[in-house]
Write a protein that binds this DNA or RNA. Structure first.
Length: 592
RNA sequence: GGGGUGGUAGUUCAGCACGGUUAGAACGCCGGCCUGUCACGCCGGAGGUCGCGGGUUCGAGUCCCGUCCACCCCGCCA
């Protein structure tokens, strides 16, 4: 028998009881006479006292204890003497007097300290992940993640969803991200792909009459990593039959409200805010706006036309845009700091950055191009006050919005304008198609199975809209959900009519033959009575990251990979035996 | 593929602009002392291929070139 209960579970009513506890030596304070041990297990920490008055033998052995030894002790729970309570831990009023001590496992000196208040380099943490995960913060993250998935399962179960697994060894889909490939031994030269998402299978499940499906599932994308992107990540994937956009949104809102309530005790206000894609781009310069602060982008075209600043006028004349952004509290920037800000704007693709300081009037090399009334109107529109700076970008529309959107975020961070809390919003009314310069054709903005808006379906089928403007005007029944500036999920109502799907492929310049090879099994399924359906996938890692306030999804994944997609713990990926390659009919061709 | 930051003791860092004693600090580790500590305290000690390779120099942790690793960002991620 190793223990009666967890270290963190010792309570007042245990006083006087003799209990057995097991755990790790978190910290020890050896006074020679008395020895205090903070004993830690998953449930928490309790102070164990070794006194020669209680057990000479146990006290003797306790001198040899070191960090992270695993021990078992037995002793009486007592109230701590008055004045020696520790208010910082839940069990701080109690302690246990050990009369027996057994060392279950010794530990070498650690590569880093578990209770280290300093930041440990991440590569060291990843190499010794088993130690890193012992840190209370990391343990807490994993516990939160568990609770989130548990609440999601409970909620969706209650709503009539069935959790169904889909294949990990599946078919490569050339659209989208790069696939991870797995060679087939029994089919030389053929490969499976690991799923980027269970998209096609969940639609087929709808065709199978499942009606409500979900899965908490690993997905794989062989693309470069970021703080919020890992090559393998987890989606909460769901799909529903006989639904419209509002039905999916309501279901997901209910689920998230439930999850936040049950895991963090946070009430989410429903319904969540919705922004059209167009509005999000105009006001925030991105389709994943952080709504925890203001600094919205402001239209400046009419005012720019009233001045004689050539940069603005020529941008407008060539069909571009001029928009402004409030540089809150930036009037004190030196010329050098403004240059840095300009360089930042240029790194985002702008040709330059126009600025006007607001302090006892307007201060800028460009004030001379504008009448005073126009300058005041600019300040009014931006809400610029004494001590602020007005920033302007004039460029082609895409660049203008993108640059200002990034600057907005960067300035808010720098100025500490981002408030705590959880700000959700839905982005709706996405364009159906997106021009791809590289390929010289339109691509599906979401994916090729996304349904066009009802009014556009008729236009698509009946009218000739093959010109660029016509195609760009088509709207999709697609939606993304954004939390604090992170895209945490997205989905759509799918096409369930074979004729619409055929037309879609035509617009994407995917030939019938190509479509048959790539997605034939889905097209077949649509022919035999496919219900209207739609769904969404949530990025679980990102969601939990935001919930626990982590900076990277690596902190909510037990065994994540580095930026070069390496697992420092296991050493994957690694070369394999020649024999394995031979079995798989693979010859290496590595270009040095 | 590109831009940036970092790499010095087990850990976190200082030292580098301006090359020149024996490369320091804190924590950890080892030994000793300590009966109310809780980041215990006090005394003593050990511990370094300055990421790696090359170059400049009488002399390189410090300057130059290359390279590897980690992180942040751009591209990429339907």
């Amino acid at each position: 028998m190793y223990r009666d209960k967890g270290c963190g579970e010792i309570v007042e009513s245990d006083i006087g009881k003799v209990l057995t506890l097991s755990g790790w030596v978190f910290r020890w304070r050896d006074h020679g006479g008395l020895i205090f041990i903070d004993l830690r297990d998953r449930s928490g920490i309790v102070q164990v006292v070794f006194s020669p008055d209680v057990s000479k033998e146990a006290h003797e052995l306790a001198h040899t204890l070191r960090s992270e030894y695993v021990i078992k002790i037995k002793g009486e729970v007592r109230k701590r003497p008055e004045g020696t309570e520790n208010p910082d831990i839940p069990t701080g009023d109690l302690e246990i007097y050990a009369d027996t001590l057994e060392i279950l496992s010794r530990a070498d000196p650690l590569p880093f300290m578990i209770d280290e208040p300093k930041e440990i380099s991440e590569s060291l943490r990843l190499k010794h992940r088993y130690l890193d995960l012992r840190r209370p913060e990391m343990l807490g993250n994993l516990i939160t993640r568990h609770r989130v998935t548990k609440q999601i399962r409970d909620y969706l179960d209650r709503e009539g969803f069935l959790e169904i697994e889909t294949p990990m060894l599946t078919k490569s889909t050339p659209e989208g991200a790069r696939d991870y490939l797995v060679p087939s031994r029994v089919n030389p030269g053929h490969f499976y792909a690991l799923p980027q998402s269970p998209q096609l299978f969940k639609q087929i499940l709808m065709c199978s009459g499942i009606e409500r499906y979900f899965q908490i599932v690993k997905c794989f994308r062989d693309e470069d990593l970021r703080a919020d992107r890992q090559p393998e990540f987890t989606q909460v994937d769901l799909e529903m039959s006989f639904v419209e956009v509002d039905d999916v949104i309501a279901t997901v809102e209910g689920m998230l409200a439930h999850v936040f309530k049950e895991t963090l005790g946070v009430e989410i206000e429903l319904p969540m805010q919705r922004l059209t894609y167009r509005d999000a781009m105009e006001r925030f310069g991105t389709d994943k706006p952080d709504l925890r602060f203001g600094l919205e982008l402001v239209e400046m075209e009419d005012l720019a036309r009233q001045g004689s600043f050539k940069v603005f006028l020529s941008a407008l004349d060539s069909g571009g845009r001029v928009k402004g952004l409030l540089g809150k509290g930036l009037a004190g920037l030196s010329r050098k700091e403004i240059d840095l800000l300009t360089e930042e704007a240029q790194s985002y693709g702008a040709k330059g950055l126009a600025w006007i300081k607001v302090k006892d009037g307007f201060e800028s090399p460009i004030t001379k191009f504008f009448p005073d009334g126009v300058l005041s109107e600019m300040a009014d529109r931006l809400g610029a006050e004494q001590g602020d700076m007005m920033l302007f970008v004039a460029d082609q529309e895409e660049t203008t919005l993108d640059v200002l959107g990034r600057l907005r975020l960067s300035i808010a961070k720098r100025q500490g304008l981002i408030k705590d809390g959880f700000k959700f919003c839905w982005i709706v009314d996405y364009p159906l198609l997106e021009w791809d310069d590289e390929e010289g054709r339109f691509q599906a903005m979401h994916h090729p199975f996304t349904s066009p808006a009802d009014e556009d379906i008729e236009r698509m089928l009946k009218e000739d809209i093959s010109d660029r403007e016509g195609l760009a005007s088509l709207k999709a029944k697609a939606y993304d959900i954004v939390l604090n500036g992170y895209e945490i999920g997205g989905g759509s109502i799918r096409i369930h009519r074979p004729d619409v799907q055929r037309k879609m492929f035509e617009l994407l310049q995917i030939s019938e033959e190509e479509a048959r090879i790539k997605f034939g099994f889905l097209l077949d399924a649509l022919r035999f009575g496919a219900p209207p359906h739609g769904g969404l996938a949530l990025g679980l890692d990102r969601l939990v990251m935001i919930m626990v306030g982590a900076e990277s999804i690596r902190d909510v994944i037990a065994f994540p990979k580095t930026q070069k997609a390496v697992c420092l713990l296991s050493g994957a990926p690694s070369p394999v035996e020649e024999k394995q390659l031979k079995e798989l009919h693979i010859k290496l061709d590595i270009v040095e």
